[in-house]
């Protein structure tokens, strides 16, 4: 077969990649050693970044794409997919990550935005993107820009799951509200939530957003992960929650098992035993408004 007959980077391939992650846990890692621990624990992918969100919060300053040398090392170390974060609107960081071989790019509010008006045109890339969202309109705007996967924004680096819960319930509730609406009513909804009409109609028809929808932003324990699955998440991102926990290996394994057994409280009780204390965290209500990450992007 001649190579020019192979079609790369199609919508089907990008969204298909995200579907292979369903029911899995994607873990933030900052070096190859952590990536290996994540892979051994059963992560479906790792997210390579310079510091975990809770450290980004503490350190302050401008948070950027990770050191390409570290991303490359992580890629060489594990067999599972490697994702990496680019700043909102920073298409050059995204191009660099794509050239390194990152399997998916997270255009992430955890990093300091590079563009206060526009997100990256993700249709221009061969690799798929995941983007954060707080509500249905935001999710559909990102999908319209080419995102192949959506995650709740939650409030990253807090270990406080309440914002992820709020965003997941918001999105699921807005989808339920579409049910039974006529086309003209859906057009009105599209106008209200500032989302493309075709995507609103498609969401109404499918009774879900047209791409995989993960939970992220504050998930810190096996019970948190199971809670997000119960609320309808297709899978879970765990950021600071693993490698700032007392026993990262145990926490990572327990969260993987919790996602596979999210509807079985007796199994969740077992896997939650003896895994040490979770990340200390910080409650969302105590964060000054100018340090809130979820309001980055729109």
């Amino acid at each position: 077969m001649e190579l020019e007959k192979l079609r790369h980077g199609t919508e089907l391939i990008k969204r298909g990649f995200a579907k292979m992650q369903k029911g899995g846990v994607i873990m933030d890692v900052t070096n190859p050693e952590q990536a290996k621990i994540a892979e051994d624990a059963g992560a479906v992918a790792v997210m390579a970044l310079q510091s975990v969100p809770s450290d980004i919060r503490k350190e302050g300053g401008v948070a950027r794409m990770a050191d390409p040398a570290m991303v490359a090392e992580v890629i060489d170390t594990v067999t599972i997919p490697v994702m990496a974060k680019a700043r909102i609107g920073h298409f050059v960081e995204a191009e660099i990550l794509q050239s390194l071989g990152a399997d998916m790019i997270d255009e992430s509010e955890v990093l300091t935005p590079a563009d206060n008006f526009y997100h990256i045109d993700k249709t221009e890339f061969t690799v798929p993107f995941v983007c954060g969202a707080r509500n249905l309109g935001e999710a559909l705007r990102r999908i319209n820009e080419g995102a192949a996967m959506i995650r709740t924004k939650g409030e990253a680096g807090t270990g406080d799951v309440s914002e992820a819960v709020r965003h997941m319930k918001q999105i699921m509730g807005e989808i339920r509200e579409l049910k039974g609406k006529t086309k003209e009513e859906l057009i009105m909804v599209a106008r209200d939530i500032e989302a493309p009409i075709e995507l609103v109609i498609e969401t109404a028809k499918m009774e879900r957003i047209p791409v995989v929808n993960f939970a992220a932003g504050g998930v810190a324990t096996p019970a948190d992960a199971a809670l997000m699955m119960r609320l309808g998440a297709d899978g879970v991102f765990v950021g600071s929650g693993i490698f700032t926990a007392e026993k990262p290996e145990a926490m990572a394994k327990a969260i993987v098992e919790a996602v596979n057994n999210y509807d079985k409280p007796e199994v969740l009780a077992e896997v939650s035993k003896g895994i040490g204390s979770g990340m200390k965290g910080i409650s969302v209500s105590s964060i000054p408004e100018d340090q809130v990450l979820q309001t980055r992007g729109w």
């Binding site: 077969m1 007959k5 391939i13 399997d103 690799v127 798929p128």
Partner: peptide
């Protein structure tokens, strides 16, 4: 395992 490469090499073909 990844005979054809990473995600950027993923493809559709007849």
């Amino acid at each position: 395992r990844n005979a054809f490469g990473r995600q950027r090499e993923s493809f559709e073909a007849e």
